[in-house]
Write a protein that binds this DNA or RNA. Structure first.
Lengths: 101, 101
DNA sequence: ACCCTTGTTCGACAATAATCGAACAACGAC
DNA sequence: GTCGTTGTTCGATTATTGTCGAACAAGGGT
């Protein structure tokens, strides 16, 4: 099975941005940025596992994450370096927590 | 009539990203970045004026542009400085033209 | 005044995307 | 092998968003 992890340069910018333009996925990305490689199940916001799987797929296919199998789990990690090389400032801009209004 | 140009800091990050995650709007933003303040009508990609007006509204309400009346036209401009202050690197990341695949 | 140009708004429709439950697959443990 | 855990995939539903034509509004020119 191909894990469908595209070359980041081959992904349209709009797809990268769209992947980040969702609250749930942004929470996932932030968790990954803080906690490093994590199992899918660790992203337990108030959503079903079907929905979680969907969001992880969107992130993966947008070139933002990589996934590898580890026993019965799957470990997900941010493609930080590639992201920073191709879109310098983008991750930081998105990850920076600003004071609540 | 209120032009509905919110404080950028009050706009959720996801809304800013969503505004940029569309091909038509990205073309508009690029045109604004290159050409400076422009009339709405100058963004003549293959869309109706209703659709164009809609996209400009999305950009404006996401805090990305400002609009002012000028005779029978309306001039739109990018809120570059505010954007770069609040999301350093974001505009550059999005504007940078990478070589086509 | 009248018309033309420029935009916006409305209502409808089409396309896209988020969400869920249920069924399925892979693995480890026992 | 069987069972429980962890994820994925399928099908359906709902919500959101892009798109358009038509109607409307505001200005400038003649």
């Amino acid at each position: 099975m191909e894990p469908h992890e595209p070359d980041l340069a081959a992904v349209p910018v709009t797809s990268v941005l769209a992947a980040l333009a969702d609250d749930v996925r942004l929470q996932i990305v932030r968790a990954l940025a803080e906690g490093g490689e994590s199992a899918c199940g660790s992203f337990d916001f108030g959503i079903s596992k079907a929905t979680r799987s969907h969001h992880l797929k969107v992130l993966r296919e947008a070139g933002l994450t990589r996934t590898r199998a580890a026993g019965t789990s799957r470990l997900v990690r941010l493609r930080r370096d590639e992201l920073n090389e191709l879109y310098p400032g983008l991750l930081d801009a998105v990850l920076t927590q600003r004071p609540p209004a």
